[in-house]
Write a protein that binds this DNA or RNA. Structure first.
Length: 884
RNA sequence: GGGUGGUUAGCUCAGCUGGUUAGAGCGCCUGCUCGACACGCAGGAGGUCACAAGUUCGAAUCUUGUACUACCCACCA
């Protein structure tokens, strides 16, 4: 038998077990006709990413689902991988190259730079994959994929071409969100708005032909006035009716622009007159189209001013230009006023700089046709969302879906497979790079410079990772997958699009259930972020508490669909529980010898009340864990195991069987031991998905020689014991009596070392018989010297009493307590109660209180008073007895 | 402006289909080095379940409204 150390030390076991599992091939899966598949696709983390606490939550949840399914006998496959993360990765490597070599990507050129990113990726990328292993996730590492690997790139290209041929991909001029830091377009979803204190500037625009007349406009972005091509007013606005059709001499430029009427203009806001900059604002763009205005782009890709502005401003940064324009207009006497103005500014999610609306030509996917089956799948319940309320959010987005801007002006990503002939103008999306123009036969063929949005590969993840477009065995067997576990912030980016892609390209849903986790926040409720420095490093936490403690602690505080406030105190809770389990196992194993038959339950007729009771509680726990996990109530399942292990198995059962284990009665001893081992084996199984390492470690000591490792053992079954109601009732009675005696002892400050006499009276013959049967337990657990159980028992002098059901329990105190100390204690307590009673009486005697306070409050006070008076009487009675 | 959550013990949160005396962990108080565990054991104090009205034999739970709070979507020149 193995000697277990006094406290559980995770460090020694975690790595050993992980490599054992991996070497044994438990994580790997192949299509198996004998078994039903259970497949989960990891939400691929960024290849540049480091493990953060959100990954811990997300991957622990998946691992629980996967490990449980594996124990239930499914052919389980959890496919891991990473995302090439276009902007983040490119920016990361650009910074790296700038810092180490002082070069930019342009010094390398496209091909060489992309080559550098691949090199960087091989060396530093995928750190997160190595870190995930520390968590104990049971991914099929042989199937690891990368969104930019060969197979997935082929899938991306196939998808693009199909959509292009279907006419769902088009090129269009749009005002898009431009990131001036990474020089690329962003989708709406990649823009985050932040509220900022800005200004509203009021400028006077001189009206042509009317000396001294000005139209005052308000703007939050003065620099864009250089691109104005009109001023708009509301057609209903009487203040300006006579100006419609006239023109403005745009200050600081030599341009003359029209005053147009458009109902878009809000008469209430500002002055009711709006400057129109069609090339730099989406609404202005619409107005520009309606009124056939010029579109003047005034900025370079880095948001500095370009050659379309007067020479003075050229090359200026947008904010520098803003200052200068305001100053110049002020000098011209054209600055009316400046107001403070709170408004929202769009920031690039990845680069964290304000985005600039910019008119440019981009590729789009027409989304409406794709949205229909996706909506249907979720609303009909073919795909379930947990918690369900996310369905509404999903519907809202899909019903108002906009076309998806998929082109990015980056180098790192899947290049758009559209080719054009510079000679004849032929254009097409191609599966293979063409060398000659199919139309005119020339060789002047150019591929589009842009790459695709990262999500254009992620949305294919559930099937591209299985080998699509090839229809192979894997795809047939594993698709559709089972559960998707993800944070709700990517419901549009990713979840909705995967569903659309699943139906469009596979003709079937990509997964059956989606579980949305909560967001993890710190104790102040702030999001975890690097810049705040409030995100603990999970690896440090694992180092300190162990992976099991981290996983289990997280699960305890992860209520379905709510945000989670992370606190290491909760990980301590996990650690403490692991230690508790460790020591319970240690205790059981101390009593095991080579003859103990692991996993065998004693014969029914040998089982005593306590044994039946713990088996009944175990059964109830298994049922509850099953139900809770089926409903994705991970925290409840974790709590079930916690309560059963700690409050039932440790606090009661182990204490109850101690006397049997120490006795010479080998029959009774063996029954208790076998039951304890049996229960412990089931605990360890139930807990394994949550805390894989410690449970496997314990399992090795309590499994029979022929049994397999825990990770591939069988999930517990609830049908252990059918009839135990009687045992449960009897145990409840026994536990009530023991607790009552303990309470009396504690309240009367009976030293724990002293044994007390106890008299139990009243009750029915039956209840007394039950207690008589369990007499030994009362003696040992409640420290009882002489126990008297009889129908009629007189209350002895100087005793404390309690009532349990219809039983009365007396503990004579003579000789047990230090009379002087007890008197002192009682005096203090009596004084305390008298004070409280005076307080309440004063309140009740106050006519204002009685008449004005709500009735229930008054009643409450009265009840409190009665209770206190009763207690006081008891205390006084005891005090007088003591005084004698 | 539209939507979705939350408000329960000092703190962090459970409480599922309305049903005994509303629970847990931490913290606090009292007492315990009794041979699994002080990462522990036994006991205890602490609640107008945000507020108001309603439905009901019965409401933390259902309905309506209010307040505060968090998040999501759209627009704000």
């Amino acid at each position: 038998m193995k000697e277990l150390s006094k406290t559980y030390d995770p460090k020694h076991v975690e790595d050993t077990w992980y490599s054992h599992w991996e070497k044994s091939g438990y994580f790997h899966s192949e299509p198996n006709k004998e078994k039903a598949p259970f497949c989960v696709m990891i939400p691929p983390p960024n290849v540049t990413g480091m493990l953060h606490i959100g990954h811990v939550l997300n991957n622990t949840l998946q691992d629980i689902l996967v490990r449980k399914a594996r124990m239930e006998g499914f052919e389980t496959m959890w496919l891991p991988g990473t995302d090439h993360a276009g902007i983040s990765t490119q920016a990361r490597v650009e910074r790296y190259i700038r810092e180490t070599e002082g070069k930019t990507r342009h010094d390398f050129g496209r091909e060489a730079f992309v080559e550098r990113i691949w090199e960087w990726k091989e060396e530093y990328g995928g750190m997160i994959i190595r870190q995930l292993r520390k968590l104990g996730v049971s991914c099929d590492w042989e199937r690891e994929r990368f969104t930019f690997d060969e197979g997935l790139s082929e899938a991306v290209r196939e998808v693009f071409v199909r959509l292009y041929e279907k006419g769902l991909i088009y090129k269009g001029k749009r005002i898009i969100n431009w990131c001036p830091a990474s020089h690329t377009a962003l989708s709406d979803e990649e823009v985050v708005f932040q509220e900022e204190n800005g200004n509203l500037w009021y400028f006077k625009y001189p009206v042509k032909g009317e000396e001294g007349r000005y139209l005052i406009i308000a703007t939050t972005r003065p620099e864009t006035m250089l691109g104005d091509t009109a001023v708009a007013v509301n057609p209903e606005d009487k203040r300006y009716t006579d100006l419609i059709g006239k023109t403005i001499l745009l200050p600081l430029t030599d341009r003359e622009i029209p005053i147009v009427a458009d109902s878009y203009v809000d008469m209430e806001f500002g002055t009711g007159a709006v400057k129109i900059t069609p090339a730099h604002d989406p609404n202005d763009y619409e107005i520009g189209l309606r009124h056939n205005l010029n579109f003047i782009n005034i900025m370079n890709v880095d948001a500095s001013m370009n050659d379309n502005v007067p020479e003075k401003y050229r090359g200026m940064d947008r904010y520098e230009c803003r200052k200068t324009i305001v100053k110049d207009l002020d000098e011209l006497g054209l600055l009316e006023k400046i107001e403070d103005h709170l408004h929202k500014v769009g920031y690039s999610e990845r680069a964290n700089v304000p985005i600039e609306p910019r008119l440019s030509e981009q590729w789009f996917v027409k989304m409406e046709p794709l949205a229909k089956p996706a909506l249907e799948a979720v609303n009909s319940g073919k795909i379930t969302f947990n918690p369900e309320r996310w369905v509404k959010t999903y519907n809202h987005w899909l019903e108002n879906i906009r076309d998806w801007c998929i082109s990015r002006q980056l180098w790192w990503g899947h290049r758009i497979p559209v080719f054009t002939c510079t000679d004849c103008g032929w254009e097409s999306a191609e599966r293979k790079d063409p060398t000659v123009c199919p139309k005119c036969g020339c060789k002047n063929i150019k591929q589009d410079e842009d790459v695709l949005d990262t999500w254009f590969s992620s949305w294919l993840w559930p099937f591209s990772t299985l080998g699509w477009p090839e229809n192979n065995e894997d795809l047939k067997y594993y698709y559709p997958t089972q559960d998707l576990v993800t944070a709700p912030d990517i419901i549009f980016f990713w979840v909705a699009r995967m569903i659309m892609a699943g139906y469009e390209f596979m003709g079937e849903l990509p997964f059956k259930n989606v579980y949305f986790t909560g967001l993890i926040r710190d104790l102040q409720g702030r999001k975890m972020s690097k810049s705040l420095g409030n995100s603990p490093d999970p690896l440090d936490v694992i180092e300190q508490y162990g992976a099991d403690a981290l996983r289990y602690g997280m699960m305890l505080i992860a209520p379905k669909g709510h945000d989670i406030l992370f606190d290491t105190a909760q990980i301590e809770l996990g650690r403490n529980f692991m230690n508790k389990l460790w020591n319970a196992s240690r205790f059981v194993l101390m009593n095991v010898d080579e003859n103990t038959q692991m996993g065998q339950l004693p014969k029914d007729r040998d089982l005593e009340t306590a044994d039946k009771w713990i088996l009944a509680q175990l059964k109830r726990t298994i049922e509850s864990v099953d139900k809770n996990l089926a409903e994705y109530r991970f925290n409840d399942a974790a709590k079930d195991i916690y309560d059963f292990t700690w409050n039932y198995f440790c606090d009661w059962y182990i204490e109850l069987i101690k006397s049997r284990l120490y006795s010479d009665d080998t029959e009774r001893k063996n029954t208790a031991l076998l039951t304890a081992v049996f229960v412990l084996r089931n605990i360890v199984k139930l807990l394994h998905p949550f805390a894989p390492f410690i449970t496997e470690e314990i399992w090795q000591s309590i499994k029979s020689e022929t049994e397999k490792d825990l990770i591939v053992s069988e999930w517990p079954k609830a049908e252990i014991l059918s009839k135990a109601e009687k045992a449960v009732k009897e145990m409840n009675l026994l536990m009530g009596v023991i607790t009552a005696i303990r309470t009396i002892r504690s309240e009367m400050t009976v030293p724990p070392s002293k044994k007390a006499d106890v008299l139990i009276g009243g009750g029915s013959d039956l209840t007394r018989d039950i207690l008589n049967e369990q007499k030994d337990y009362i003696h040992s657990l409640a420290k009882v010297e002489n126990l008297t159980i009889a129908a009629g028992v007189e209350k002895p002098d100087l005793a404390s009493s309690a009532v349990v059901g219809d039983l009365e329990i007396f503990v004579p105190l003579a000789g047990l307590i230090d009379i002087d100390k007890e008197k002192e204690r009682l005096e203090k307590e009596i004084a305390g109660f008298e004070g409280r009673i005076r307080g309440i009486q004063g309140k009740l005697n106050n006519p204002n209180f009685v008449s004005r306070a709500p009735e229930n409050v008054v009643d409450h006070e009265r009840n409190k008073l009665a209770k206190y008076e009763e207690t006081l009487a008891l205390l006084k009675e005891n005090y007088q007895k003591l005084a004698k």
